[in-house]
Design a protein around this nucleic acid. Sequence first.
DNA 1: TAGATTGTTAATCGATTAACAATC
DNA 2: TAGATTGTTAATCGATTAACAATC
Lengths: 215, 215
Amino acid sequence: MARENKTPMATLERLATCLRYLNTISDGTIETLSSSDIEKATGINAAQFRKDLSHFGEFGRPGIGYNVRELHKRIAKILKVDVEQPVILIGAGNLGSALMGYAGLRHNKFNIVAAFDNSPDKIESKLWDIAVHDVKDLKDVNRSLGAKIAIVTVPASQAQNVTDRLVDAGIRVILNFAPAALRVPDGIVVRNVCFIQELTVLSFHLAGEMPNGTN
Amino acid sequence: MARENKTPMATLERLATCLRYLNTISDGTIETLSSSDIEKATGINAAQFRKDLSHFGEFGRPGIGYNVRELHKRIAKILKVDVEQPVILIGAGNLGSALMGYAGLRHNKFNIVAAFDNSPDKIESKLWDIAVHDVKDLKDVNRSLGAKIAIVTVPASQAQNVTDRLVDAGIRVILNFAPAALRVPDGIVVRNVCFIQELTVLSFHLAGEMPNGTN
DNA sequence: TAGATTGTTAATCGATTAACAATC
DNA sequence: TAGATTGTTAATCGATTAACAATC
């Protein structure tokens, strides 16, 4: 068990990329793929892909390659996206509401089952057919929902407070859209979607086009 | 010039993180910071921070540290976020509209100056005071706007088509929210915000809590 | 001067890529 | 059997961290 203790994050990201590709060819026309086929389709280096898989056992047959259906099934299982996952969302503002209406989530087995907010305007209403609860009832409501995944779309100023409540309510992993560094206990995993930071990194690359002798 | 040719992406991300921290203390109370002060505040290793800066010249004074105002100014300049940047957005759907209304963009000098869509419902309307144009007029409209940065929030099926138009209209860097791998010419930089992938990676980490002898 | 902290060089670490024996 | 491709070990590469002479 201590085996898969420390899977590199990069490995997980590549497996997720590969899974996305496998989804696109899941009509069943292709039965077998070699690691170099996968390199062609996804850009992931073939040797690296085999290495990535090796963290989790043996998947293919020497001389043959990988059975597409089996590969899909096993990667989905590793990433725990083989079954529907209930997800709760905190912060039913513009961004939160847009995410609630995003069909891609459900298509990928992430099912937003409830939203929470602190504005009386929104509490007790429904958005995209999803009930919006008072954030005060978070723990209570999630007792029956049993969600382990939360999406945070509150303003930065409230992000830490909300995070503490989420942890208390049994949430194990958090996707954070707020521009704030969340402190969480050991064992809770946070990933930040920070598009301001992404834009900033992109912005740097505009440097290249300085007309002349600039510096 | 070939000097700063290959700044590691990780360096840029750390500088962006540091800049965000410097923003939070820009009231001027703190005059000087050492690299280890910055480590305490941001978690970025002090030696690494100094190394990161060394890609761009000398910033501090031995025995003293960094002048906060100067550091802020120079990092902002490196990342090209010292001046307002015009940004265009393609795809005025739920997500696009939410981003247009997000004040954090303007606060960080990213100014969405126009949106584009292909739906007659939206063209010629205004969202959050930003005009929505026909995507067909992209090149024409951007001739006067001169934006170099674009945000893509169209469905995956249209993402490549839209990307080709953007490149043709003089866009140099793209923040892509569509779950699609965009092909672009050399010199154009794309960063993907893929929260399905983020959720998938998070989902993996739920594995730890399997009750007993599973697997 | 003595103490602090930089910028940079050297040592360490981890991740990527290449090579190959084992296997179909 | 000969050709193909795996899983894994070894070699390469790059990024992180530590150490230290130079400097305030």
